[in-house]
Amino acid sequence: MSVEYNADQKIPHPAMWGVLYKSSTPFWDGVKEKRVMLQRCKSCGYWLNPPRPMCPKCRSQESEWVAAKGTGKIYSWVTFNESPHSAFKTPYEAVLVELDEGPRIVSNVVGINSDELEIGMPVEVTFEDVAEDLTLPKFKKVG
């Protein structure tokens, strides 16, 4: 089911640590523009997911960021019945989505009940403003 938050608690996200996350900044900049950005090796096209400084296949250090289509399938999920962080109301799901391009990313679902979730379910990205300063890419049923 969709995640509900405790409004008085900060959702943990990179910017709040107060440090510069050099490798993921293009992803979070992309989210602000409602895009899911992925890093890819410029030399051989291998997906660098999560982002990293060198391609493990061809050892090139030249990479580029490209926007994913935003469609994929549920690959796995977890239902948290005990919250590991005060910002998240239980129960809620974290899902692993396999994007149509191949890379898998962790996210949440919107408008899908726990008992509807299944591995292989087609989903598409939607962007949810979860706090004044935070938008997250989440996934809903296709169509």
């Binding site: 993921s24 999560p50 796995s76 590991p84 910002a87 962790v106």
Partner: peptide, 25 residues
């Protein structure tokens, strides 16, 4: 740091949850 960058905002926090994602699969 991927955990803080890419997992924490979605509530995927803590080792039982990390393992659960693999174990469901």
């Amino acid at each position: 740091m991927v955990r803080y960058d890419y997992f924490s905002p979605f509530g995927l926090i803590g080792e039982p949850g990390y393992v659960a994602m693999m174990y469901r699969r």
